[in-house]
């Protein structure tokens, strides 16, 4: 456990120290929230949601921020590989599983912090907290998204030689995961051919979970969301750990 803590500590320290990264990765989600929120608030009416579009997308944008931060945290292993630091970790008498889990929890923690910062901003533009229990539910789902996608990033990084492929992953994997999730639109109003794709996207359940926590309403039952997200987190951690075990430097 102390090894996991050691790796976790390094990740969190590095994150808290890189102010430019914290500010930088707030940019896009804030932009989405402001432009889409204010731009569409008066024209979009979502059935069953009285609070308006702004309150509908805030959970989606929080999920997006957690998604991007965690994938990036996972993929950062490539930097460690290139700057040599990974060797220092791998030559120590510790198991790779411990390293991988520490890395995953570290990435998930930074992603949750990033999401929380965004929530604070959201308070100023209309987010009305639905109580402490709801807040904790939202944080729980953020953590599950964080674990799932940090592990995903580690899995990718274990197979990638350098950052060249990063753009490819962002454009063809991460953006579709975000776009297809119910972050920006309600699932019920989707055309029949698109619905299965959205329901196959793990992030959909994360978004719905956060939405349930923050606004009290969701289109997918929160327990279903919880089961799917928890399952994905476990599965991705197993896949990530397997691929990380075979990493070569």
């Amino acid at each position: 456990m102390d090894i996991v803590y050691t790796i976790w500590l390094r990740n969190v320290k590095r994150y808290l120290r890189s102010k430019s990264r914290i500010v930088g990765s707030l940019g896009m989600p804030l932009f989405f929230m402001l432009v889409l929120g204010f731009g569409l608030n008066s024209v979009v009416r979502i059935p069953g949601m009285e609070d308006g579009y702004m309150n509908f997308i805030i959970p989606g944008i929080v999920a997006m921020s957690v998604l991007f931060t965690s994938v990036f945290s996972g993929i950062q292993i490539i930097w460690d590989k290139q700057f040599g630091f990974l060797k220092e970790t791998l030559v120590a008498p510790v198991s790779r599983l411990e390293i991988m889990i520490g890395q995953t929890l570290g990435g998930a923690t930074t992603a949750v912090i990033q999401g929380l910062i965004l929530m604070v901003f959201a308070l100023f533009i209309g987010l009305e907290p639905a109580g402490i229990a709801g807040f904790l539910i939202a944080v729980g789902f953020m953590a599950l998204i964080g674990v799932t996608f940090t592990a995903f990033g580690i899995a990718i990084a274990s197979r990638m030689e350098d950052m060249h492929g990063f753009q490819l992953i962002m454009n063809f994997v991460i953006f579709p995961i975000f776009g297809l999730s119910g972050a920006l639109f309600p699932i019920d109003s989707l055309p029949a051919w698109l619905r299965p794709l959205t329901l196959a996207d793990p992030l959909t359940y994360g978004v719905e979970g956060i939405r349930y926590g923050l606004s009290g309403t969701a289109q997918i039952h929160p327990l279903v969301s919880l089961a799917v997200m928890a399952g994905c987190a476990v599965l991705m951690t197993v896949v990530g750990a397997y691929l990380f075990r075979k990493i070569s430097i």
Binding site: D2, I3, Y5, T6, L9, R10, K13, R14, R17, S18, F83, G84, F85, K87, E88, T89, A92, P93, V94
Partner: peptide, 23 residues
């Protein structure tokens, strides 16, 4: 190692501490 294997974003003490905890 032949190539550097320090974490440049950490201090010297933190690099040492990380190593000590790993061992």
């Amino acid at each position: 190692f032949q190539d550097q294997s320090l974490d440049e974003e950490l201090t010297a003490y933190e690099n040492m501490d990380f190593h000590g905890r790993l061992y």
